[in-house]
Amino acid sequence: MQPILQVRDLRFCYDSGVPALDGVSLDVHAGERIAVLGPNGAGKSTFFLCLNGVLAPESGQILLDGKPVDKKARKTLCERVGIVFQNADDQIIASTVASEVSFGPMNLRLPRNEVARRVDHALEYMDLQAFRARPPHDLSGGEKKRVSIADILAMESEVILLDEPAASLDPAGEERLERVLARLSDEGRTLLISTHDVDFAFRWATRAVVFFAGRILADDAPQTVFGDAALLRQAHLRRPVLAEVFDVLRAQGMAPPDAACPTTVGALARLLGEK
């Protein structure tokens, strides 16, 4: 199957001279749920900005549907790849929630009624209808986060990049976020999420990509990535609690020794129930 996005040997360097991306290659297929892991400063955010076309890589290539994206076509990257910034306050520019959400679709030069439809849909999706006329400086952190996600939903991008979306959310906010992510995934969107939350990455992702010092250290199924102790040590990651618990259960003979670690608590309960 043709990958929706292909990245070939991407390199990028900020003014400080230290390479932020040092030869990154990655294929993204439609409908994938990819967790992008790695310590702060590993290049995750820079990678996202390159994928979305905001930053122009020094060398390397990005292919969209197999066609290379040159300088002129960088705008099509913006249209088809949306990015939700880590800090919602860095992203929100308008003075009411509704006009904020309309900013992206207006830039896509859509007709007025189509923009209005998309704004309504995005606000409905993020449960923000009650806030539509409110100024953003009146909202709480969690509400601003929802606005920043609605911003990108209104652009109806096929690929959505979320930069540490759960940072600064309370548990209820995280739960709501996961529901939205699940729904987006069911609707066939391709999602890449950078996160430090290994438990979330373990249960949510179909694929885990580990960044370290501007390179990709590992790119595999979460079970494989989180099973590699040497890799986790090198990338300053820890094992998910569920994997640790499963090891204990297996050592005590309470779980089948040959079973793969389940990724959710529900799956673990089922596995133990079978036994």
Binding site: N87, M106, D151, M155
Partner: peptide
């Protein structure tokens, strides 16, 4: 620093030098 991040965020949503919003 904020202004740099802002201009990135605006470019990410297709801003091309013309600020447009849907007015009610």
């Amino acid at each position: 620093r904020r202004s740099r991040v802002y201009s990135d965020a605006m470019a990410a949503r297709g801003y091309d030098g013309d600020l447009r919003f849907l007015e009610e």
